[in-house]
């Protein structure tokens, strides 16, 4: 097998960072394509069962939640909330979990660390690709929460560019959260991460009620402001159900941008720490 070697020949011209990142995106896309069924299952199961039980079964058995807003259905309140949860969940499942394993147990990340670009950009690619999956997750959840409820939600989108902006910011925040969790949490603590981070974030993310209604539990209303999911749900609420109470749009935009930057910076920092000793 003496000739079993590629020619050293002329070394390849240095590739631009964009080209290298494109290669990483292609790889991630291929892996996503291969795991499309698991991706869809994990994305839709939670919201599917949630809307089925609470907005289809409950009204039929004579029980039901109130939206807390006169003249509106619980389903209408749920749509932005569940779409946002779907996106955050994707950030965790698609970025944090595989990254945690690749950085520790299998060290598979090494080959990509050795790709000719700064490792910081490799981490940024993780955020961006996590965001792409977040958008896909949001799109997958939307028809469920729209069509399943027995009393269909009333949505209106007067401002499409704002909706697109909110989806972009929310998905980037999800990707950044996924990167931060994936680089900090070791594989053996993934279960703990769900219990201590993912569950509290989703339950206290103003998913099932607008943030404004929390004014009767003032301390909680203040406490949940540290939860990035609150701004994601409020952002979608502001664009999908604008007549319902929601935070001012500028607050949401600043908060989501800040969350992306802070979580992203933490994630990139830990990523570098974990890959370069």
């Amino acid at each position: 097998m003496t000739d079993a070697v590629a020619s050293a020949g002329a070394p390849h011209a240095r590739a631009s960072y964009v080209t290298v990142m494109w290669g990483l995106v292609l790889r991630d896309t291929r892996v996503l394509g291969r795991t499309l069924l698991p991706f869809i299952s994990r994305t839709i199961m939670n919201p599917l069962l949630f809307v089925f039980v609470f907005t289809y079964v409950f009204p039929r058995i004579g029980q039901g939640f109130q939206s807390g807003i006169t003249g509106s259905s619980f389903a209408t309140v749920l749509v932005p909330g569940l779409v946002a949860v779907g996106m955050v969940f994707q950030g965790v499942m698609a970025v944090a979990m595989p990254l945690s394993i690749e950085l520790s147990a299998t060290r598979e990340i090494e080959d990509r660390v050795l790709a000719p670009l700064p490792v910081e950009l490799l981490a940024v690619e993780k955020i961006v690709f996590g965001a792409v999956q977040g958008v896909l997750a949001g799109l997958a959840v939307f028809p469920l929460v729209y069509f399943i409820p027995s009393d269909p939600p009333h949505l209106q989108v007067p401002n499409w560019p704002l909706l697109i902006l909110m989806i972009l910011l929310a998905s980037l925040t999800s990707g950044a959260l996924g990167l931060a969790l994936g680089t900090i949490v070791r594989p053996q603590h993934i279960g703990l991460m769900f219990a201590l981070v993912v569950v509290p974030i989703t339950f206290l993310g103003c998913v099932y009620y607008p943030w404004a209604l929390l004014h009767t539990v003032r301390w909680l209303q203040m406490l949940v402001l540290i939860n990035p999911l609150v701004y994601m749900t409020e952002g979608l609420r502001a664009t999908l159900t604008p007549e319902y109470p929601h935070m001012p749009v500028w607050v949401i935009v600043i908060a989501l941008a800040l969350a992306t930057l802070v979580l992203g910076a933490i994630g990139v920092r830990y990523f570098v720490k974990r890959t370069i000793s």
């Binding site: 390849h12 011209a13 240095r14 590739a15 631009s16 080209t19 290298v20 494109w22 290669g23 990483l24 292609l26 790889r27 291929r30 080959d111 990509r112 790709a115 000719p116």
Partner: peptide, 13 residues
């Protein structure tokens, strides 16, 4: 195959 192919893509080919 993909291990080699994507590795090449990481190097800008």
């Amino acid at each position: 195959w993909e291990n080699l192919y994507y590795h090449c893509r990481y190097f800008g080919m």
